[in-house]
Design a protein around this nucleic acid. Structure first.
Length: 869
RNA sequence: GGGAGCAUAGCUCAGUUGGUUUAGAGCAUCUCGUUUACACCGAGAGGGUCCGCGGUUCGAACCCGUGUGCUCCCA
């Protein structure tokens, strides 16, 4: 097979992906091999691929492909999440564009549009994963609202309700005024916002003109005030406790109470208490039996509690109320103030604390085993630092608000009669059966649906129908899954809850390892986001550089557990690596017509082969260890260096036949074999080009994608060291040539003075070729008018045609001498320290003594060289 | 306010229970070079007060304390 001048990724990628699919390599069925199961963190069904997905799925694919080549039975399950709030928001927006208001539709009509939308756009992200080369089992594609999955979610709700782990209650929740739904605590993003602190005085219900001044960042909520609270020990206000004051503008009379919750130093030390719109105020209100007055509607506009602002948005009111308060004489001052404000994760609306009747999961009942599983390392977190984060959240766990005032999702299986009694069962018939008193009564189903994560937490179980068809062959084989790869930001949303669900419903952990990826940021360290416009178009990048280069680029810059700063230059590096791989194969193929079986393998080529075999095995062991510990980026760097430097720059140069010379068949075949091993090692990271080259090298009986790794050979340390010495000698001599401005084309005569000539004789052909020496001779004495180079205990004399720059030579030697002397001094200092000799381990002392001997020898060599100049 | 983490070359990072030659890699930079795979290249080089201070130790990038600066999570 002839290789084109350059590697063109596009066609090759399409060709091989289709081939792999056609061969069914990615499809898994339970068999007698060990399972390696990965479930994809299901992306939002309406989503498109971004850099975060790229990183996350590349990592999963590396693990899965590696497992496949290790002879396991990998199963990587794709799928999407219905993403209740995000999808509903998109559908509402789409309808609005078409001039349809959600409020004008019935639930069923709306869901009709939503499904239509899902069918049309839902598959995009999965198609994009194919472009990246992900070896997902497409026959297993799941969706969190598939019929079986849907039923399972409902069953789980009913079950937890029956067990008393789900309840309905009126509590403070986070209200998204845009989506008009409740949110869980995890869906609220706290950001720092520059705001104002308003100091407002309330007239006291006392004779005369006396006031009490409070400080607030939310003046529009004064209409919901039902008390003013001060610290019982605050001398400024002690005398006012038990008295009353009037809310400005509406003149409602409220009590002044005392509670040590108040921070005396904060603001004016007097707090306005608004139980309907602040969690802390609500708790205070409960404690003191205060009235709750709601001032806000579900869309964020003011209620008739604030008659003068009725129907106006609370943000707008905050702007104008200052003027009105000033007019009424109640505004004392306004200060700049930075405070934390909660925003909806999905709609970015400012979240309003609101008192509301919702459904809750009692998390304390579920947390115990889930915490234990991680703390005992039954589930291992990588990096382990996330254990702390996890424990902290679990220790302070709060109940989970799971009802959402949305239509797109799993509808809550609760029914109400005319009196407001609640009945929970799978469906209305089940309600009637379970609660005979409901027969004949008109029941209405709860109109809310469940939080998306209430379905996602069953993902590793239900993609194998572990609940809709308990104990089936697949769940028993694939569960628990092997590795979960996900972002640390969803550790609470998803990871923790999956562990809870696994323990609750399978009695087993859902996965053994969790690998947390970093967050993809731009060059300036900003998180990539749509609004900043700093998220590159992934498909465009794949078109430009090829999928392998993109995978390489994102992995090489991706230290385990740290954020990665995405820089397109790493993709260039990946593309260059493609070229390097391609060209090395081209070189090998160029030799094919000149293969010869005559004679024996030349000594130098034999050495090169022995050395590379040792280097390959040593690196395979190293890479294996790195991958076992999830140090993927390091593993890729190591493979990159092995291919580029050791194979291409050293090995291939060492065995390269002279101009138009034959290559021995054994050398050729071994070189092809080595290269194939390198491709195999690299395959999980860069699947396309490696598969292509695997087949280009020679006729293969098997695709690389499913070729199993062979046992790693034993590492010959002696030859490994000999190779290292050779590389060192070559580099040192090349440096000497460079510094003496000997042109690459000009050859030299090399004289070696060593006590171990045999070591050099074995490799002298390589040496001659690599330092452009036309002769190599061995000598016992120094050679005049030559460039002298000292290395270890050996000396090298380079005889060139041109004049020698003695001055710079001397300078270099002196510099080296100084360094060696300094080093010797530090070693001697250590060895002459009695305490060191007494306390240090014997092997450490031996090392120090060897260092000393080596340094002395080197100093002698350098001094001898200097003497000759 | 509570908690966690980080600080090593211009940049991104390795550095395993403290001792493995006076700290390593990749990228970037500089010098030289188009020699029959590759300029998307080759050869070579330069570049570090391991954040500051104090301590433990025969010995500290590594352990302890403290200060500073960043990042993340939670409220």
């Amino acid at each position: 097979m002839e290789l084109s001048k350059n590697y063109i990724p596009g066609e090759v990628e399409t060709k091989w992906y289709q081939h792999w699919i056609d061969q069914g390599y990615f499809h898994s069925e339970p068999n007698n091999k060990p399972a390696y199961t990965v479930v994809i963190p299901p992306p939002n069904v309406t989503g498109v691929l971004h850099m975060g997905h790229c990183l996350n799925n590349t990592i999963q694919d590396i693990l899965v492909r590696r497992a496949r080549m290790q002879g396991m039975n990998p199963c990587w399950v794709p799928g999407t999440d219905h993403a209740s709030i995000a999808t509903e928001a998109k559908v509402v927006a789409m309808l609005r564009e078409r001039g349809i208001a959600k409020s004008s539709l019935s639930r069923d009509e709306f869901l009709g549009y939503a499904w239509e939308w899902k069918e049309k756009y839902g598959g995009i992200i999965l198609q994009q994963l194919r472009k990246m080369g992900c070896s997902l089992d497409w026959e297993r594609t799941s969706f969190t609202m598939d019929p079986d999955y849907y039923e399972t979610v409902i069953k789980v709700f009913v079950d937890l309700y029956n067990k008393g782990k789900i309840y309905r209650g009126k509590r403070m929740i986070n209200w998204d005024v845009k989506a008009k739904t409740a949110l869980s605590d995890e869906e609220v993003i706290h950001k720092e916002v520059n705001g104002k602190m308003y100091h407002i005085r309330y007239k006291l219900d006392m004779p005369g003109e006396e006031y009490i001044t409070i400080a607030t960042v939310r003046p529009e909520t004064i209409f919901g005030d039902t008390a003013i609270c001060v610290h019982p020990k605050d001398d400024r206000y002690k005398h006012l406790v038990g008295k009353h004051a009037f809310v400005p503008m509406i003149n409602r009379r409220i009590p002044i109470i005392a509670d040590d919750y108040i921070e005396i130093e904060f603001g004016t030390g007097a707090l306005k208490v608004t139980p309907a719109h602040d969690v802390n105020d609500f708790n205070l209100g409960q404690k003191h039996g205060l009235e709750v007055i709601e001032t806000m509607n579900d869309d964020g506009t003011m209620t008739d509690a604030a008659p003068m602002y009725l129907g106006k948005d609370r943000i707008e009111v905050r702007k104008i109320i200052a003027t009105d308060l000033e007019a009424s004489g109640n505004l004392v001052k306004i200060e700049d103030y930075v405070n934390q404000v909660g925003f909806s994760e999905r709609t970015d609306a400012i979240v309003e604390p609101r008192l509301s009747l919702q459904w809750w999961v009692d998390m304390k009942q579920l947390a115990g085993p889930a915490l234990e599983a991680v703390m005992s390392d039954e589930i291992q977190f990588h990096p382990a630092k996330f254990k702390n984060v996890y424990r902290h959240w679990m220790d302070n766990i709060k109940d989970w608000c799971i009802s959402r005032q949305l239509w797109w999702g799993h509808r809550i299986p609760a029914w109400y009669d005319a009196d407001g009694n609640v009945y929970v069962a799978e469906n209305e018939a089940a309600v009637n059966a379970k609660y005979p008193e409901t027969n004949g009564k008109t029941l209405t189903q709860d109109s809310d649906c469940l939080d998306t994560w209430f379905s996602s937490w069953l993902w590793p179980i239900e993609v194998f129908k572990g609940m809709s068809n308990p104990n089936n062959t697949e769940i028993n084989y694939y569960y628990p899954t092997s590795t979960l790869v996900t972002a640390p930001e969803i550790i609470f949303f998803w990871v923790a809850r999956m562990i809870m669900a696994g323990e609750e419903y399978m009695g087993k952990i859902p996965f053994k390892d969790v690998y947390f990826t970093g967050i993809v940021r731009d060059k300036q360290g900003r998180k990539m986001s749509k609004s900043l416009g700093n998220s590159p178009d992934l498909l465009g990048l794949i078109d430009q550089y090829g999928a392998d280069a993109v995978r390489f680029g994102i992995m090489i810059a991706s230290p385990a557990g740290n954020d990665l700063l995405f820089d397109e230059s790493t993709l260039e590096q990946g593309r260059n690596f493609n070229s390097k791989l391609w060209n090395a194969a081209k070189l090998l193929k160029m030799w094919e017509p000149r293969i010869s079986n005559e004679g024996t393998v030349p000594q130098d080529a034999a050495f090169a082969m022995d050395w590379f075999q040792a280097k390959l095995s040593a690196t395979q062991i190293e890479v294996d260890e790195m991958l076992k510990t999830f140090r993927l980026s390091e593993a890729l760097k190591t493979i990159y260096g092995l291919i580029w430097d050791d194979y291409c720059s050293w090995y291939l140069e060492w065995i390269k036949p002279g101009f138009e010379q034959a290559i021995h068949a054994d050398v050729y075949n071994k070189s092809i074999e080595f290269y194939d091993s390198l491709l195999q090692l690299l395959h999980p990271f860069m699947p396309f080009i490696t598969e292509e080259l695997h087949h280009a090298l020679k006729t293969q009986t098997q695709d690389l994608c499913v070729k199993e790794y062979e046992a790693i050979g034993k590492v010959d340390e002696t030859v490994l060291n000999a190779g290292a010495l050779l590389k060192n000698v070559i580099s040192t001599l090349r440096d000497a040539r460079n510094k003496n401005q000997i042109k690459p084309k000009d050859s030299i005569d090399l004289h070696i003075q060593s006590e171990n000539n045999a070591a050099y004789q074995r490799i002298e052909n390589i040496l001659a070729k690599q330092v452009n020496a036309k002769s190599i001779a061995y000598t016992q004495a120094s050679i005049g008018s030559s460039i002298v180079v000292a290395l270890e205990k050996d000396k090298f004399y380079l005889v060139a045609d041109q004049a020698i720059d003695t001055a710079s030579l001397k300078e270099n030697l002196l510099k080296d001498l100084e360094h060696q002397k300094g080093f010797l001094a530090s070693v001697e200092k250590k060895l002459s320290n009695e305490k060191f000799v007494q306390n240090a381990k014997p092997e450490v002392i031996a090392i120090e003594q060897k260092k000393k001997a080596d340094a002395l020898a080197r100093i002698q060599t350098i001094e001898e060289s200097l003497a000759q100049l």
